[in-house]
Structure formats: structure tokens, C-alpha cells
């Protein structure tokens, strides 16, 4: 089947087998290997990307289902060498060790901040319940997300624009992740 998908701002048209999972399309066809596969039961969340502005597990979406959609991956976050505030916060707070879960964690963290720009610890933990990490014990991840929230508050600087609109509750594809205008 022929599909057209915009990934990290670039439009791609490809023929894919219907059984191709979105994550395999990203990795094997487009070379977007920043998004990884950690399990086969949709538990680990390592493959999380944004599909039309919402986080999804790209192992549980067929590539054909993404036809006509916009996808943002971990590789589409940084702009002009400038890290997304959530990426920066993960670094600043030592929120990763082996880093395998990190792309999914960052993508889900951005999503949760779009829904709740000022989450307390409980809200962060609940918002990341679909992502497993075996290295960090989550404490620094929680810290990083709250730190990012602080930096992304309105008026916190130009990076904050990339999740603007979250405070009004109106989300659009371009309001999350910085990926898909």
C-alpha cells in the first residue's frame, strides 16, 4: 500500500506492507533509528512518538494507519542545534543512564506537559506510567519533567513557544514536540 507520512517535518511517500508497524517503517525505511523497540506487548513505551500531536506507541500503530498523518520522533525535536527544553532537562537532571528508554520518555514527557503544563510529582508519575525504565528508578526523570515545565512556562523564553497553547488546553499538532508544523 502506498502511504504518505510527514515525519519530523519531511513528507515521505512509500509503498509498505500492511503489516508494517509504524516503528519499523520509521526505523527501517526512513532510518529514524532514534525510536527504538523494547518489547512486543506495548508495555515499555520506548517506541513512543507523536502522531498528529498525540503520543502513541509506534509499535501499536500500523504504518498504513499513519497515512496522511504527521509524526514527530525524538530526532525531530532539536531545532538548529537547540535542544528541546525536555531534552535539555533530561540532561541537566541526569534523567537517563543507558538511554534506551529515553526517546520514549522524552516524547511522553512532552505530551504530558502539553496536557498539564505544571504537573506535580504524582501527575508526572501517572503520566509516565506507560514507559518503563530499568536504570534510573524514575526519580530524576520526574525531576527533569518538572524542571522542563518550569522552563517552558509562558515567558520562560523562546523555547516555551513550542508548547504554547497547552495552558489553554487547546492542543494542535504544532503545539507539541516542536515537530509538525
Amino acid at each position: 500500500m502506498r502511504i504518505t507520512v510527514t515525519v519530523d517535518g519531511t513528507s515521505y511517500t512509500d509503498d509498505v506492507e500492511p503489516r508494517t508497524l509504524l516503528v519499523h517503517y520509521l526505523r527501517e525505511r526512513l532510518g529514524k533509528v532514534g525510536t527504538v523497540v523494547g518489547c512486543d506487548t506495548s508495555n515499555c513505551g520506548a517506541c513512543t512518538v507523536h502522531l498528529d500531536g498525540h503520543s502513541v506507541k509506534s509499535c501499536s500503530v500500523l504504518a498504513v494507519q499513519a497515512d496522511g498523518s504527521e509524526v514527530t520522533t525524538i530526532e525531530g525535536l532539536a531545532r538548529d542545534g537547540q535542544l528541546h527544553p525536555v531534552q535539555q532537562a533530561f540532561h541537566d537532571n541526569h534523567a537517563l543512564q543507558c538511554g534506551f528508554c529515553t526517546p520514549g520518555m522524552i516524547m511522553q514527557s512532552i505530551d504530558l506537559l502539553a496536557d498539564n503544563p505544571d504537573p506535580d510529582e504524582h501527575a508526572v508519575r501517572e503520566g509516565l506510567e506507560g514507559n518503563l525504565c530499568r536504570c534510573t528508578g524514575y526519580q530524576n526523570i520526574v525531576k527533569a519533567v518538572r524542571d522542563a515545565a518550569h522552563h517552558m512556562r509562558p515567558g520562560a523564553g523562546p523555547e516555551a513557544e513550542r508548547v504554547a497553547g497547552a495552558d489553554t488546553g487547546s492542543r494542535t499538532a504544532s503545539s507539541v514536540g516542536g515537530g509538525g508544523e
Binding site: S42, V56, K57, S60, D111, E129
Partner: peptide, 8 residues
């Protein structure tokens, strides 16, 4: 489930 699953 979790937020990602609830989106789909």
C-alpha cells in the same frame, strides 16, 4: 492502560 494507549 496509559496515556499513549488512551490516545489510540
Amino acid at each position: 492502560a496509559d496515556p499513549q494507549v488512551r490516545h489510540r
